[in-house]
Design a protein around this nucleic acid. Structure first.
Ligand SMILES: Nc1ccn([C@H]2C[C@H](O)[C@@H](COP(=O)(O)OP(=O)(O)OP(=O)(O)O)O2)c(=O)n1
Ligand SMILES: [Mg+2]
Length: 708
DNA sequence: CTTGGCGTCGTGT
DNA sequence: TACACGACG
């Protein structure tokens, strides 16, 4: 039944580069007089001095933290300089920080490595190839004699470099030299750290921004140790130091465990520190958390994490939103229209720049609305290719208008407008960087071996192993970041591979083009050239170099079939297909396109007959009715697959229940440290948390679900 | 309904 | 799919 997949886990060299107090540094570069003094970036000065979103290290020393109000910061540190986030069209405008973040990515890309933009100020870098290249140069034709490779490291690259478990970099390297066994993994980390030292220096030279970095064998550990020595420092984590690190690491500090899953580990399993996870078998963890989350945690407890560095430097979406709380709530259609217009103007402006820089266009536009009763929803329509602000605003507002028709003019607390589903443009007339070709290295396929071991027995009936009452289980569905196709395979009880091999085939380089759903090539072809959308200053030319054949450093076998995504054959009648057509500017609530004209159509919902023209209007009626039911927590009319218990419940108290539930919604506290709400009430975990992020769950209670 | 604002990403269904 | 929602910067 269940299959376990084993991959080499300490053969990659992964770095996480994180800018120091980024927004403040951006402001300090603009106005150097700020440097060396306490400073913070705030947005919206009016309410209690605005909210602080970035704090420099001088101000941190005085106790100023993110999420403080500007007024609080002044109280804690009277001399602090507060810099305001620029405002455009009545809302915060983060353009200058996005631009600064791009500068940094540009520099990192000059090192010809696989770079993943993880956020506005963070990037993961897979250094495996670069390290092995350097290693092969160092040891030249000598056999595996690394004893003289270490002296060739440029020690200037190690200033401000730390190694977990050692007093100094020198001590670590000395230990490596003196070791009987060749410590190949550590040597790779050392070479990686040297490269990262050069990268950080280049970033400073070209942007004047300081950053810190973590260097480890995987993303989770690289990110974790990056934060241990800051600012302007880097930290290496040899695998053998993992136990020591884990014994001093609260679970909530680990990426993906800062939320409900972390709460579960603490509250249900008693795991305060990461080392406590080691007390559990994989089966025990899987029992309460699902197979994938369980395996992820089990492997993490040993310091392993297989998530790939995905080569991508461009955002997948461009959006903006604004909150309107309390008295500012939008209570009229006119106000909603006004603000949608403002948001549309910003989005279009950014889309236009994105088109010029990256030669791609958004195909999808989504409006997010949160009402005063805390109910939120989003609706999507096609994005007009014109990139015209009035047009975009009109399309977005037409969605809003339909919501109003279905729900009434409810007060709005938040509006968001997001463009996504980018595709490369064929026409390059808007492309300002026509000569920009680039080379992006895909992530390393550091897989040494993928052995598939049939472990039918593991998951069979080990109920006796469970430490956790299965009545409180989260859903067994969890994700581990496995791509959709592989996940499908998993459902079929096939093998799920590690993420390091999740995208071996179709599209190793970043591209917004529609991906060929049929993986075909082998992972061995790793260098690729594309003129697509990375805003990278490329290598000189389109050196369409094919991968040099390396000595079989590793063997590789994929267990996942190469055929994925069995496309649903279109069984639906033509008219039905037309309903889902995603014509630009029309949300799903409006059916504007019929691809086949029929004399009379029969409504799928109620059986009534209409002309195609009238059917449009008629379906709007159903759509509005469905929306009303959805808003009130009621199931769709035509089928209800929910458990009997829920079905009963909703019949009389749907509306009230949903309202109450919405009112109960509470954003989870994000305070870093000690202070927490004294109230006993804590955001209830709602679902078994896939890794590393989680998803919705309406019916599953929680990790802490009713204990009995 | 202010443990805050704005912005991304991933994932189940 | 479109949508909801968690997690995080
Ligand atoms: N809740 C948050 C967290 C971060 N940011 C922005 C401001 C930060 O400057 C930037 C980077 O976030 P980091 O968590 O990396 O924090 P800093 O870079 O400011 O500081 P550090 O030196 O700890 O990385 O993202 C934000 O707007 N809201
Ligand atoms: Mg940072």
């Amino acid at each position: 039944m269940a299959l376990s997949t084993f991959v080499a886990s300490t053969n990659r060299v992964i770095a996480l580069v994180d800018m120091d107090c980024f927004y403040v540094q951006v402001e300090e570069r603009d106005d150097p007089s700020i440097k060396g003094t306490p400073a913070a970036v705030v947005q919206y000065k009016t309410y209690k001095g605005g909210g602080i979103i970035a704090v420099n290290y001088e101000a941190r020393a005085k106790g100023v933290t993110r999420n403080m109000r500007g007024d609080d910061a002044k109280a804690a540190c009277p001399e602090i300089k507060l810099v305001r986030v620029p405002e455009t069209r009545g809302k915060a405008d983060l353009t200058k920080y996005r631009d600064a973040g791009r500068e940094v990515i540009q520099v990192l890309n000059e090192f010809d490595c696989c770079v993943e933009r993880a956020s506005i100020d963070e990037a993961y870098i897979d250094l495996t190839e670069a390290v092995e290249k350097k290693l092969s140069e160092m040891s030249s034709d000598c056999e595996l004699d690394f004893s003289n490779t270490l002296p060739s490291l440029d020690m200037d690259c190690f200033t401000g470099s730390f190694v977990m478990g050692y007093d100094s970099t020198e001590q670590w390297l000395e230990a490596l030299r003196g070791s009987e066994m060749p410590q190949l993994d550590d040597i790779k980390l050392a070479i990686g750290a040297e490269i990262v030292g050069k990268m950080r220096e280049a970033v400073y030279k070209k942007t004047s921004f300081r950053c810190s970095a973590g260097i480890a064998h995987n993303k989770v550990l690289a990110k974790l140790v990056c934060g241990i020595n800051k600012p302007n420092k880097q930290t290496v984590l040899p695998h053998k130091s993992v136990p020591q690190l884990w014994s001093a690491t609260k679970v909530s500090k680990v990426r993906g465990l800062g939320g409900k899953l972390g709460d579960y580990l603490i509250g249900r399993l008693g795991c305060e520190n990461m080392c406590d996870l080691g007390k559990f078998t994989e089966n025990e963890l899987s029992a309460g958390l699902g197979a994938k989350t369980g395996m992820w945690l089990y492997r993490l407890s040993q310091g392993y994490d297989d998530e790939a560095v995905t080569p991508r430097q461009l955002p997948k979406s461009i959006g903006c939103n604004k909150n309107f709380f309390g008295p500012e709530a939008l209570r009229t259609k006119e106000k909603a229209k006004f603000w949608i217009t403002q948001l549309a103007a910003e989005v279009v402006e950014r889309l236009q720049r994105d088109l010029e820089m990256n030669n791609r266009k958004a195909k999808s536009l989504t409006l997010h609305v949160k009402f005063e009763d805390q109910n939120a929803l989003s609706r999507t329509c096609g994005a007009s290719p014109q990139y015209n602000p009035e047009r975009l605003a009109a399309d977005a507002y037409s969605i809003m208008e339909k919501l109003y028709q279905a729900l009434g003019v409810l007060p709005i607390n938040s509006l968001g407008l997001i463009a996504s589903k980018f595709e490369d443009e064929i026409d390059t007339s808007n492309y300002t960087k026509i000569n920009d070709f680039f080379k992006t290295k895909p992530c390393s396929s550091s897989v040494l071996e993928v052995e598939v071991i049939d472990t039918d027995s593991l998951n069979s009936d080990s109920s006796t192993d469970k430490l956790v009452d299965s009545s409180s289980l989260g859903p067994d569905s969890s994700t581990l970041g496995i791509s959709g196709s592989l996940q499908k395979l998993d459902e079929n009880n096939s093998t799920s591979t590690s993420d390091t091999v999740k995208k071996p085939s179709s599209n190793p380089i970043e591209s917004n083009s529609i991906v060929n759903p049929l993986p075909s090539t082998s992972i061995t072809s790793k260098h690729a050239v594309s003129h697509s959308n990375t805003n990278v200053t490329p290598k000189k030319s389109e050196t369409s170099e094919t991968k040099e054949h390396r000595k079989p450093f590793f063997s590789f076998s994929v267990t996942a079939p190469t055929i994925v995504s069995p496309r649903k054959s279109p069984r639906k009648p033509v008219a039905a297909a037309a309903v889902s057509s995603n014509e630009e500017g029309s949300s799903k609530l409006t059916i504007t396109k019929v691809t086949q004209v029929l004399a009379v159509e029969e409504c799928e919902r109620c059986g009534k007959k209409f002309s195609p023209w009238d059917m449009e209007t008629h379906k709007d009626y159903h759509a509005a009715k469905d929306l009303y039911r959805e808003i009130n927590g009621m199931p769709p009319l035509d089928f209800d697959l929910r458990p009997e218990t829920l079905r009963k419940k909703e019949i009389e108290q749907a509306s009230a229940e949903r309202a109450a539930k919405a009112a109960q919604k509470r954003p989870r506290g994000r305070g870093k440290g000690s202070s927490s709400c004294s109230s006993s009430k804590r955001g209830r975990p709602m679902s078994a948390n896939p890794v590393p992020t989680s998803s919705q769950s309406k019916t599953i209670d929680s990790y802490f679900g009713p204990k009995s």
